[in-house]
Design a protein around this nucleic acid. Structure first.
Lengths: 223, 223
DNA sequence: CGCCTCATTGAAGCATGTCAAGGTGAGTGG
DNA sequence: CCACTCACCTTGACATGCTTCAATGAGGCG
């Protein structure tokens, strides 16, 4: 596990031998990796667990811009901006690797592979953001939530009972809805026996039904 | 104008001398640069004009994922995906440069500067997508529209009358609203003399008022 | 214990979507 | 040149999805 490639096909040892300072970090729920506006010193790779990237409106309302899973990178915006664009908050017990940004910068100039790897991750992030835009722009609450649950499940293949460290406010902040509305829909899903929930774990009982809901649009009843 | 750097600090001549096939292209409204699913052969830089990137839901409903302005790049997802992720449609008379993706790929492996430049643009795109997510997730229609108009204006500094090639359906598809609702709000803005519109041109009369609206949130009245 | 935050539910209000109708303007074929 | 069409814009009336406010209960934690 310690030997698996953590970034750009390189594992911890190899990165270290290239002069990179790599630090293993263990976090638990609620830990703040960095806040919006912090000067960007480190980037991270998420080895296990889950992290949310949060942006706040002047108003105090928070929006979750992206949810990170095992294998995702974060904090790399520091390669161009001096400061972090959002806050990174740990959702579930996680293990991360912390990389020094300045050294990463130098490394990427020497190793095109690294540069390439970073670009690739950025494209992934962009794609997921664009998908999210579609969800927010075109679907209704029920469909957004259904889509989201199915996507979440994809991150834990061959697992019946999924880790699900998201609170209702979290879900609301990610899906652009009110806490109450999310709660109502989740309760509905449970009543219809589409899902089952207990102590931070989620089980999807009727993926088929959720998939139908996910593809249902405001303006069109398929029958 | 022909000599200005079009990409990664290189102008047309320099790119050509590096073996890159560069083609100047002139387009007008409605031209389709590529469609979603087209195999990705070319990337483009937008020299003047405006382009929309569109994704369709299975339902037929269209969402504008991103709006491109002078200096923006498009089609670069082809460097990793074999196919384009969205359709690119020209909104206003535009001049573009078309680059061969395969050659660009090779070039970027030889020139770190190019790789770097592409990564930078990707980050910009990601940032703008994330901002868009915030708009869709946290603001109401009036505020979204106000924000959008002000942002649009920023792309045409020192211009009183802005080119504004967006139809109401376009605005709706970008802001995640219905055409009618957009129309109503725009009419409101005109009645309040915040803006003025004529034949594809827009004038912002009261940026201050729009800015106030843009910062107004559903749950909080500032007074 | 007492104080949080979270989850759930109800009732009411408002924002936005839907449906429908009529008006304009641009392009097209006669 | 005209008439036709078609996409777009606007407006109204209505339906509904979603939020807000309020109240309650349940679990974590000092």
């Amino acid at each position: 596990m310690r030997d698996r490639s953590i970034f750009a096909g390189l594992n911890t040892e190899e990165l270290r031998s290239l002069g990179m300072e790599v630090q293993d970090i263990a976090c638990h729920q609620g830990d703040v990796l960095y806040r919006k506006g912090d000067s960007a010193r480190h980037a991270y790779t998420l080895r296990t667990g889950a992290v949310k990237l949060v942006k706040s409106l002047e108003n105090g309302r928070e929006v979750i811009i992206r949810l990170l899973h095992r294998g995702d990178l974060l904090g790399f915006e520091g390669m161009q901006d001096a400061q972090h664009r959002h806050a990174a908050i740990v959702l579930a017990p996680s293990q991360l690797c912390r990389l020094d940004l300045a050294e990463l910068q130098r490394l990427s100039e020497r190793l095109p592979k690294v540069q390439e790897a970073i670009r690739q991750r950025w494209q992934q992030a962009l794609q997921s953001s664009e998908d999210h835009i579609m969800e927010l722009g075109a679907k209704r609450a029920e469909a957004r939530l259904a889509t989201f649950l199915l996507q979440w499940a994809e991150h834990y293949p061959r697992l019946r009972s999924l880790p699900f460290p998201l609170s209702r406010p979290d879900l609301a902040a990610f899906l652009g809805l009110s806490t109450e509305h999310v709660s109502r829909i989740m309760a509905d899903f449970k009543r219809h026996a589409f899902i089952q929930e207990q102590r931070g774990h989620l089980e999807i009982l009727a993926p088929q039904s959720l998939a139908e809901l996910a593809g249902k649009w405001p303006d069109h009843k398929p029958d």
